[in-house]
Write a protein that binds this DNA or RNA. Structure first.
Length: 640
RNA sequence: GCCAGUGUAGCUCAGAGGUAGAGCAACUGAUUCGUAAUCAGUAGGUCGAGGGUUCGAAUCCCUCCGCUGGCUCCA
């Protein structure tokens, strides 16, 4: 009996001998089509996989994400084969599948030019047509190292030496062999619909001081239609890129003469910011926060005491004022701490929740700047909570609740939550770390939120929860962050007098919900594709007289709307109505109120709604009521 | 910061050693029009900045600045 294992596969369960290959089981099943591989315990394997334990097997077919992963991994190999044929002497690094595609890293003296990439793609098509079988081969570690050393593939030798067991798995297709666990397709002819997308620099093993490699990115699909759709979707996403929409809609700009990573908020962007800030302040006041304001600079000594000068790399050089060194702030925390320290605190005062829209400046390396999403000057929607050990759990839960409410109001439903735990280098004692990490995790569990654990990714001073939201091109950006801090309270010797009359150290939670107004605005522009909901739209209504004869009526309507605080304008230009409509649609104004002789005579309006179209005649009062309602409720809809 | 690409009118782009171009937007005029572009005219540029090669540079070379993709995904 001990030679038998139980295999769960395809809704059935069967007993097989130890050492059975997956493929032997599969031939016994009546399947439509052949699977590409299997997934066991979350790992992908090919059909040669030998079963030695009782496990559950998931079959991988082409129409799945896992199937695509196998295809893309094989396409990466195909690309490496093409590169080695065209550019002999190139050394191969690693070539994994990634979200939406794959890449392969190469080392070569000369960089790949765009023409080289075209040649590589052409060669890949040729190799695909040649229908080269892809075979798995098992070698001893010694053999494998010899083979790759002979081929001059030093990087592979390094990897095999480090990661290879006694037996080393390789995949071979024609003249190309790669050290790889697989799984892979069985022939290059199965790789048909692919495209090389871009190249870039990369460091060997992600080490900035290490070897500089060239990375080539590509993608692949099983169907031509899917590839075309993907390429089309990239083009579409570029149209709602905030860096394109922002200047187009006159929301913000970045001026080279002012400096990289510094944002100019134009009037239309500024009104949106104001509305976001008002909402943010209201919510915080409702939730027991108090507002504070702090300066933009402080003496360098303050940053020495906080530890920023030693630990924080993004500081600007200090400036001298009256022989004393001052530093522009990269964070708000030391200021809030000084407010805490401005008097003796008692357990009766706690929790203290201090919020500030605090503008900070950080030196970000030039290559990482990115529109509104990564800048050098930005305003954090910051707050610091000082609380006792007993209050920690409920404070964290309340921060998460507030976060979810705010994100929901803006219409965000998709985001990723991460819990980052203790890194190797850390300050504070283990008990506190454990308590705080548990408090964070318990809050997530209590609220039944899906989250991933980022082991060791916490900051040196404490564990944290991050919420990331994706931009138009699918890149995730950290917005919300909830961090515990074991560093500053002790560095500044924060205390409160407990019930017992003794001094205790408060817990400190550092949190930002939107992250920064700049980044959040960028994400928001892309989230709405520039079609802001009524409550945020810089201009909510534009009144379009059909000819000059109804200009007076249009202006009367503008007056009426303005009385109710509705943000509106009238297009008095001497243009045809279709021209004015086109302009208003391009400016993504929610409502177009069209008035001609008919409306003037009947005393009503014609309404056209952005992205929806002509809604016909309407009473002015009804329209006003609708707009006010949607505005007040922060509705994401344009019509009721 | 590093690798590669890129920078011409407000925007989208053409020009690739020999006098800076188009469309849209802007401005002026005509047209008075019913749901995504009426017609005509006018104006707009140290070709990112600085240096060099040349009789002559937007174009070739160098330096700097900005922007774009990537530098996290691990055989």
């Amino acid at each position: 009996m001990e030679n038998l294992i139980r295999i769960e596969i395809n809704d059935s369960s069967l007993l097989v001998k130890k050492g059975t290959k997956v493929s032997e089981i599969i031939t016994k099943l009546n399947l439509d089509g052949k699977p590409l591989g299997v997934k066991i315990n979350g790992e992908l394997y090919d059909l040669d996989f030998v079963l030695n334990d009782s496990v559950k097997i998931d079959l991988i077919f082409p129409d799945s994400e896992d199937g695509l992963e196998i295809l893309r991994h094989s396409t990466a190999h195909l690309m490496a084969q093409a590169v080695l044929q065209l550019f002999p002497g190139t050394k191969t690094g690693i070539g994994p599948p990634v979200e939406n595609g794959f890449y392969y890293d190469f080392y070569r003296d000369k960089p790949f030019t765009p023409e080289d990439l075209e040649k590589i793609e052409k060669r890949m098509r040729k190799l695909s047509k040649e229908d080269i079988p892809i075979k798995k081969i098992i070698l001893s570690k010694k053999e494998a190292i010899e083979i790759f050393r002979e081929k001059g593939q030093d990087l592979k030798v390094e990897l095999i030496e480090e990661k290879g067991g006694d037996e080393v798995t390789c995949y071979q297709q024609g003249d190309f062999i790669d050290f790889c666990l697989g799984p892979h397709l069985t022939s290059t002819s199965q790789i048909k619909y692919f495209k090389i997308l871009s190249s870039s620099g990369a460091y060997w093993r992600g080490d900035e001081k290490g070897l500089r490699l060239q990375r080539i990115y590509g993608t692949a699909f099983f169907k031509k239609e899917d590839l075309d759709n993907y390429l089309h979707s990239i083009e579409e996403a570029k149209k709602r890129d905030h860096r394109k929409l922002g200047p187009e809609l006159d929301l913000f700009s970045i001026n080279e003469e002012i400096g990289a990573g510094l944002i100019l908020w134009h009037p239309k962007g500024a009104i949106i910011r104001k509305l976001i800030e008002d909402f943010w302040k209201e919510e915080h006041l409702k939730n027991g926060y108090e507002l504070v304001y702090t300066p933009h600079i402080a003496r360098l000594d303050l940053w020495r005491q906080s530890g920023h000068t030693q630990f924080y790399e993004a500081m600007y050089p200090p400036m001298k004022i009256d022989e004393v060194e001052y530093e522009i702030k990269p964070m708000n925390c030391p200021f809030h701490i000084m407010i805490y320290k401005s008097r003796q605190r008692s357990y009766r005062d706690l929790p203290l929740r201090w919020a500030e829209l605090g503008t900070v400046y950080r030196f970000e390396r030039s290559g990482v700047l990115h529109g509104l999403l990564r800048v050098r000057g930005f305003t954090q929607d910051d707050a610091h909570i000082f609380c006792s050990s007993e209050q920690l759990g409920s404070e964290i839960t309340n921060v998460i609740k507030l976060t979810l409410k705010i994100l929901k109001t803006f219409g965000f439903k998709e985001y990723e939550i991460y819990l980052s735990t203790r890194p190797e280098k850390f300050v504070g004692d283990l008990k506190d770390w454990e308590k705080a990490t548990n408090a964070l995790e318990n809050s997530l569990k209590k609220m039944e939120l899906n989250y991933k654990i980022d082991p060791g990714e916490g900051v040196f001073y404490g564990p944290k929860i991050d919420i990331k939201i994706k931009d138009a091109l699918g890149r995730a950006w950290q917005c919300t962050t909830i961090q515990l801090d074991f560093n500053l309270p002790s560095r500044f010797n924060l205390t409160f007098i407990g019930k017992d009359g003794a001094l205790h150290r408060p817990f400190m939670i550092h949190r930002a919900i939107l992250g920064s107004l700049e980044r959040f605005f960028g994400i928001l522009i892309e989230h709405y594709k520039g079609n802001f909901p009524v409550w945020l739209a810089p201009i909510q209504v534009i009144i379009l007289p059909i000819t000059e004869k109804t200009n007076d009526y249009a202006l009367k309507i503008e007056d009426s709307l303005k009385k109710y605080g509705i943000r509106c304008e009238t297009d008095l230009r001497n243009e045809k109505i279709s021209y004015k409509i086109r302009d208003a649609e391009k400016n993504k104004i929610p409502y177009m109120v069209i008035v001609g002789e008919r409306e003037k005579k009947e005393g009503n309006i014609s309404l056209r709604v952005h992205t929806i179209g002509d809604k016909g005649k309407m009473e002015l009062e009804k329209f006003i009521e609708m707009v006010i309602n949607l505005d007040k409720n922060k509705s994401l809809e344009y019509i009721i």
